[in-house]
Every structure is written in C-alpha cells, then in structure tokens.
Simulated scan of single mutants.
Amino acid sequence: MSDPIRTRCDSGILEVTLDRPKANAIDLATSRLMGETFKAFRDDPALRVAIVTGAGDRFFCAGWDLKAAADGDAVDGDYGCGGFGGIQELPGLNKPLIAAVNGMAVGGGFELALSCDLILASHTASFALPEIRAGTLADAASIKLPKRMPFHVAMELLFTGRFMDAEEAHRWGIVNEVVEPGKLLDRAWELARLLANGPPLVFAAIKEVVRETEDMRAQDALSRVGKRQFPTVDRLYDSEDQLEGSRAFAEKRDPVWKGR
C-alpha cells in the first residue's frame, strides 16, 4: 500500500497531502503518522509554514475512517501526539498552518481545516458535520465552530449535518478565499511564501497569545503580555529579530529575519 500522506518541502514550506483513496479518511495509524509529521515540522527551525491538503479533487478529508473502525479501530484509540489529524492537540505548534480544501471536508475533515490558521477553498469544496446522523458528537467542531461564525448558523450545521458550499463558508468567514480548483495549491503556496518570509518569532507569539488568552478577560490578557508571561513573547522581546525590525524600518529596507 502507498503511504497515507505525501510531503514535500521547499524554501521553508512543508506541504502535507492526505492520500488515502477514495475519501482521504483518517484511521488511527494515519493520525499517528500525521502527528509525527507535524511534530517534526514544529521542531525544525528551517520550516516556517505548512500547507495541508487532500489528494484528488473530490475529498479534502472525509474525517474518521468508519471502515477502519468496523475493523477494530476504536474511536477513543491512540490518535498520536497531535490528536486526531496530527494538529488539533499538538502542543506548542506556533507556526502558520494553511488548509487548502480541494473538495469535501466532512466531519473530522472539517475539524482538520478548522485547526489551521488560514483556510483556502476551491469553488468545488464543501463542508459538513454529519456526525448527528450517526448519533455521535462532532466534538472539536462543537467547541470551535460557534466561535468562528454566527452562533445560530453553527448550531444549524451541527444539528442538521447539512452541507455548506465554499461560497457560503466564505460569506460566514470560515474560509479566507475561494479560488478556481486548478489554482488552489498555487494560491496556497503563494500565501505560504509570503508568510515564510515573515518574522517567525512574531508568528509564534501571535499564535501563543491567541491560543492562551481565548478565555481570558482582555485586561488580564494584556497584563500577561506586558509582563512577558508568555514564553514566545519573552523570547521575542529579547531577540535579534526585534532589533532587526526597528533597524530595517529606520533604514528603509526589508528586514532579514533569522528567528533568533
């Protein structure tokens, strides 16, 4: 059997393609492999940005592999170090992630896209949470989706399991941009190159602050940032890159970020 994921690296960018015909569904072994892949991405200072996509043009990811479940994969089994799909629960993943949704993002596939920082979708993409029809819980989506779009629309999607096309997802702010199918990866790489040339220590600080202050009062969050109580913020404020940004601005030139 071929590998369930394919990767390629170029200029600090990692592309991860889920490739499990016919629907790019994720079983326990694939989830663990994805976790190790994204853990290596997290820990490699040469890698700045990751793109997540699916093989083919019909499915981005169909979520949990029900056939594997029927063969013995437990729904509460070992998903690996990053949780389901490798990124939902991976600690310290402070680098930008881009989802390039090329087809149907269903159940856990939708949740995989929601775990990324930016979502691009082809015009043929669609999103659904059909867990309700199987009498089970879309757990990550139940936590994340009502915070990402109007509450009543999120609840409708969770309660009915209906499909939402790319244009509607864009209208509600779930998708950053909708592009022609043949241009999806090119656009994802264009955006990834832009981010790869940005300041990695600032990206890390942004991600940690956004993640850790989600349920904090604004004043408490600002106090923690001001007191440098987040490791990424403390590192940033003492970094060479912090000085480089100021110098580049004063000298009217592009900064050269070193990530230190």
Rank of each mutant, 00 (worst) to 15 (best):
I119D: 12
A121W: 11
A121C: 10
A121I: 13
S122L: 00
H123W: 02
H123R: 14
A125E: 09
S126D: 08
F127Q: 04
F127C: 04
A128Q: 02
A128Y: 00
P130G: 06
P130S: 04
P130M: 01
P130W: 00
I132E: 10
I132N: 13
I132A: 13
A134F: 13
A134W: 07
G135S: 03
T136K: 13
T136C: 12
T136G: 12
L137N: 09
L137A: 08
A138N: 08
A138Y: 01
D139F: 02
A140Q: 09
A140P: 08
A141S: 04
A141P: 01
A141R: 00
S142H: 06
I143R: 10
I143A: 12
I143Q: 08
K144D: 05
L145Y: 05
L145I: 03
P146Q: 00
K147Y: 11
K147H: 10
K147P: 12
R148F: 06
M149T: 06
M149W: 09
P150I: 06
F151G: 07
M155F: 10
E156F: 08
L158G: 14
L158E: 05
T160M: 07
T160W: 07
G161F: 04
R162S: 07
R162P: 08
R162W: 01
F163N: 12
F163R: 14
M164V: 15
M164D: 06
E167A: 12
E167G: 04
E167P: 01
W172F: 15
W172I: 15
I174L: 15
I174Q: 05
V175D: 00
N176L: 15
E177V: 02
E180H: 12
E180K: 15
P181A: 00
P181E: 04
K183W: 12
K183S: 14
K183D: 15
K183V: 01
L185M: 14
R187E: 11
E190R: 14
E190L: 12
L191E: 05
L191I: 07
L191Q: 03
A192D: 07
A192W: 12
A192C: 08
A192Y: 11
R193M: 07
L194W: 13
L195P: 01
N197F: 01
G198T: 12
G198L: 08
P199A: 09
P199T: 01
P200E: 02
P200W: 04
L201W: 02
F203Q: 13
A204V: 09
A204E: 02
A205W: 02
K207H: 09
K207T: 02
K207A: 08
K207P: 03
E208C: 05
E212V: 00
T213A: 11
D215P: 08
M216N: 11
R217C: 10
R217N: 11
R217V: 06
R217T: 07
A218Y: 14
L222I: 04
S223P: 00
R224I: 01
V225K: 00
V225R: 00
K227V: 15
R228F: 15
Q229E: 14
F230G: 11
F230K: 11
T232I: 10
T232G: 04
V233M: 14
D234E: 14
R235L: 12
Y237T: 06
D238W: 11
D238A: 13
S239C: 00
E240I: 15
D241S: 02
Q242S: 06
Q242Y: 07
E244F: 10
E244N: 01
E244P: 03
S246C: 15
R247S: 08
A248E: 15
A248Q: 14
